[in-house]
Amino acid sequence: MDVISPEGLRQDGRTPTCLRDISCRLGLYDRPNGSAYIEIGNTKVLAAVYGPREVRSLSKQNLDECVIQCEMSRIAACQGERVRRPRDQRTRALSLQIAGVFHAAIRKTKYPGSQIDIYVQVLQADGGVTSACINASALALIHAGVELMDYVVSCTASINKTTPILDVTQQESVTGCEVTVSMLPNKGSVVSLDCAHTLHLDQLDEVVDLAMEGCQQIYKVMSQEVETYLQDKNAVMSHQ
């Protein structure tokens, strides 16, 4: 089965540079300081933020800036085969990466001596899980009112023979590589770059460029959702 059919369409009918449908919501729960839910095609991720609050273990406390911790888990039914453990070595590695992304984006010096916890749960995984987690966490942080330098947007891209493809599903990424790029869209700088499976050096440029374009598109959707949410809550200033 070809990833791209002779007519130039993918398995789910998209063109190579087309994103999947995205829908997101802010503020699902009352208890966490911030929460958000995002669906990118079939990938569904839930994120909750607690903080800034007191550090739980004093040995980790940093008096100059805040400590950021992330815990990611997957539910047993998130993939085709039952996932044995919700938290294993793979999710721990991804949690470290997500925490690293927000180390760059959160204005840490505003919250010295505190801790910000991000809890992410993957309900359904169909490719682009890391980027969905990062997007959901960014929305949850915005909902919590934590100061960020800029939105954090993440997108995946891959390459199939010579055509770069945007926003790969699980099936498409099995044969090829999966490059996840997280960036700050208004500043244009990259905060995380991750590549799984092999990719040729010459193809890296175009894949990363395509992923960054995808990020800008996702940013539009996310900022639209945030504005709608703020308008609903009558939190938008009257001069606008």
Binding site: Q97, H103, S189, V190, L193, C195, L199, L201
Partner: peptide, 17 residues
């Protein structure tokens, strides 16, 4: 051979592409 097997840039700072 010119292939990138893995890339890990775990953040903690902003960088230009």
């Amino acid at each position: 051979h010119g292939e990138i097997t893995s890339l890990l840039f775990p953040g903690r700072m902003m960088m230009e592409k």
